[in-house]
Design a protein around this nucleic acid. Structure first.
Lengths: 227, 227
DNA sequence: CGCGAAGATGACGAAGTCATGACAGACGTC
DNA sequence: GACGTCTGTCATGACTTCGTCATCTTCGCG
């Protein structure tokens, strides 16, 4: 399987070098020249790994990293010219997974990306299973939910919402968490949108949508899915 | 929570330096001087992270790493003097999660350990986050309190209050402590609000709310939760 | 016993929180 | 381009929860 990287660096020359080297290794590359574009690209098309330069024209790489972390678990590797140990610590504390310094060897960077993906992948692979909650079978890859042998036809949003809740195994997820997971963290609309889709979901999966037994409201907190 | 590290290096002096530095950071340290001992220690008492030197008296660090990987998913950080990029790649390909070179800065190593644990931990933490006090089961993530198989429906504030008291294991918590933990530091209202919520909580969790047996008043001090 | 201080209790209004149905625009399909 | 579906927004109303207050009870102590 081919992985996608998001390359964040303001130097077109560096981007080109890295792009060529990493494409050679079989990665798909997206680029961003500043922090703002990076966040936009991240929302539009979440990559498997982010390579983040520390010095960006519009803002600090640390703060970009923290902003990424606030909404997402995507692996981040800091790629920078600053070799100072304090910067390494600051970068890792900001939520980065690794910190490598330029000038860098493409093979090494690639090996570090692989090591990181090896560690992260299993967590994502868990999502490719079939989740079972109560009498619902949720086939994440097949985008299909069945009860007994009737197939429930959910829309894309409803399905993602259900899958996220099912993946959390009874944990309460806040509207904000659901927004960022289902809608992407670039979404700035009303968080009440979650309520509406919860309702639509209830109409399809609850026996009595008026008094839900599976898709339960945690007042003041969010929602959770229980058996 | 405190984490345990396994330090594998043949140089007693280096082990001592690392041990001191890492104990300072709050880690529990076990040591091994060669590959054989390392595997034995690993089986006997699996650590949270392995720090592995490349040059060991009995065998190559790469092969030790591969053997570790065959048996376990424990995070491995290669700590070595060999800075050559080929070694880095070889180390990571052998299954290591990170590769740092001596001489190293303790703070940086510690930050890398933390970054790695941050990535690995969630998978292990999937297990229960459940407090038990007497006959009450408090599911912290699910925001649910059960007695036997009846679910007690607590409000958000009641739940937080109960969770704080339960987390303190029978210790008395003052109104001020509870205010800051449950209501947040920004709250400047009357501390009597605690009384009121304690009462509401008692109505829900005590068998006889008029003479509480679990949620006990410590007159002049605060409240505590006992089994 | 009698006192004062601390806590318990019940009531209330205000604010917060959700469920629900309707609607219009976006989107995709044919 | 017409149709139906999906999506996000909104207004409404019911219901919860919260913080405050006034009053009553209990406790500890002289």
């Amino acid at each position: 399987m081919t992985h996608s990287l998001l390359l964040v660096d303001d130097e077109p020359r560096i981007r080109r070098v890295l792009r060529l080297a990493l494409e050679d290794e079989g990665y798909q590359i997206a680029e961003a020249a500043n922090g703002y574009d990076a966040m936009a690209a991240l929302r539009r098309e979440p990559p498997d790994v982010v390579l983040l330069d520390l010095m960006l024209p519009d803002r600090d790489g640390f703060s970009v990293c923290r902003e990424i972390r606030r909404a997402s678990d995507v692996p981040v590797i800091m790629v920078t010219a600053r070799t100072d140990s304090h910067d390494v610590v600051a970068g890792l504390e900001a939520g980065a997974d690794d910190y490598v310094t330029k000038p860098l060897v493409a093979k090494e960077l690639s090996a570090r990306i692989r090591a990181l993906l090896r560690r992260v992948e299993p967590a994502n692979a868990r999502q490719s299973e079939v989740l079972v909650v109560g009498d619902l079978r949720i086939d994440v890859l097949g985008y299909e939910v069945t009860r007994g042998d009737t197939v429930l036809s959910l829309t894309r949003t409803e399905f993602k919402l259900l899958a996220e809740l099912a993946g959390a195994e009874g944990k309460v997820l806040s509207r904000e968490q659901l927004l960022s997971k289902v809608w992407g963290y670039g979404y700035f609309g009303d968080s009440r949108i979650v309520d509406v889709h919860i309702r639509r979901l209830r109409l399809k999966i609850e026996h009595d949508p008026a008094s839900p037994t599976h898709l339960v409201t945690a007042r003041g907190l969010g929602y959770r899915l229980v058996s």
